[in-house]
Design a binder for these strands. Structure first.
Lengths: 204, 204
DNA sequence: GAACTATACGGAGGCCCCCTCCGTTTCGCA
DNA sequence: TGCGAAACGGAGGGGGCCTCCGTATAGTTC
């Protein structure tokens, strides 16, 4: 999995491997406690969960939180990496299916996963294109997981040739963010929008 | 225009006609000042603009703001109504066009308008389905403006028969919220997704 | 035009959050 | 064991949210 190549994940080092500094044992423990507390807090209270409450929950001072994660965004990103990783891994389960079904199946997982982590996903999407190395790598990982599924569908003729993976991800990301709709609604809209990938002008 | 039937808009009363209209002249003046200041502040600083800064900008106390708008949402809604109104009105300009072009043209305006007011739009979408009379009426107004365009396109055969206006609006709303993409990207994605409305399974 | 009252004003204050700064504590190496 | 670097933690300044209530005033009545 490309994500693991990009940042090798020792269980206690996680994203920190991006930075060069070795770390003290207490710092490493607190880092883990903060990630765990943040994951729980964001899941319960959404991405608006206060950083002070996360620090309290982790049993560390607010200063410690800020040393590890200089901004809310940095913390969100760190928490998000594991979620992205599991989404990317799920692409491997689908290689047996026909090309179109594999593509749609993975995009459905994309939506379902984003629905679960809606608050985090919103923040993630809102920060795309900003100056964030970690985030860019997650995006790359999604690309590496999903693009082959699209390419295969395209080569099999199930998808029209002019369709770009980035656009597909953006389109699906947008659908992910629809707040009004039930999961069933979302699925129907997803399938509807994806049918656009198959459409060919009648004249062609 | 149905919106005007739903809430007649005297220039100094605006949304107030829905609820209890401010009776005293000073209250009415302050209401207008607050709406103007909020529109400017949200446009400049996004929907996160602080209510205290809006009150300062309007030259009134924070207490006055809260009396008129008991929540941030109430203020956002009031400001949003005029925006929705102008979008709905724009549907009238398109009746001369062929059905598909009219539908796509209006949905493009929908996206462009939402892009301009992105922060407000995000809040609006996030609050759909919540208990908000004003908001529901705006939604109705959009439906009354846009649904005939879809119906016409459906009847002309340009759009497949199983397509629902609510789903189309949701889909387009989702696309509206893509932060990563340039306006050109958004337009391409919109057209791609809308092609799903025209797709017919090969066997049919 | 004076008196009166319902209405509206405004900002202080309580609470929470963001983030920084710096004195204190701890780790881990020699 | 001793020591310096690393990490900790929380006080504090700044600001936002919202409520409450004493003050001001518009509009009415005589």
């Amino acid at each position: 999995m490309s994500l693991e190549i990009d940042f090798p994940m020792a269980s206690s080092a996680r994203v920190e491997s991006l930075s060069t500094r070795p770390r003290r044992a207490d710092a490493s423990r607190n880092y883990d406690k903060l990630i765990d507390a943040a994951l729980a807090a964001f899941t319960e209270a959404g991405a608006e969960a206060s950083l002070e409450s996360i620090a309290r929950r982790a049993g560390v001072g607010i200063g410690t939180l800020y040393r590890h994660f200089p901004s809310r965004q940095a913390l969100l990103e760190a928490v998000y990496i594991e979620e992205v990783e599991s989404l990317c891994k799920s692409a491997d389960d689908l290689t047996e299916l026909p090309p179109w079904d594999a593509l749609v199946g993975w995009l459905r997982r994309f939506v379902a996963y984003a629905a679960t982590k809606r608050a985090l996903a919103t923040e993630l999407m809102a920060s795309v294109g900003q100056d964030s190395e970690v985030f860019r790598k997650c995006h790359d990982a999604i690309w590496h997981a999903g693009e082959p599924l699209l390419a295969r569908a395209r080569e099999s003729g199930a998808v029209r040739p002019d369709v770009d993976f980035t656009d597909v991800v953006r389109m699906v990301s947008g659908i992910t963010m629809i707040r009004t709709a039930s999961p069933e609604d979302i699925d129907r809209i997803l399938i509807l929008a994806l049918d656009g990938l198959r459409y060919r002008p009648p004249g062609e």
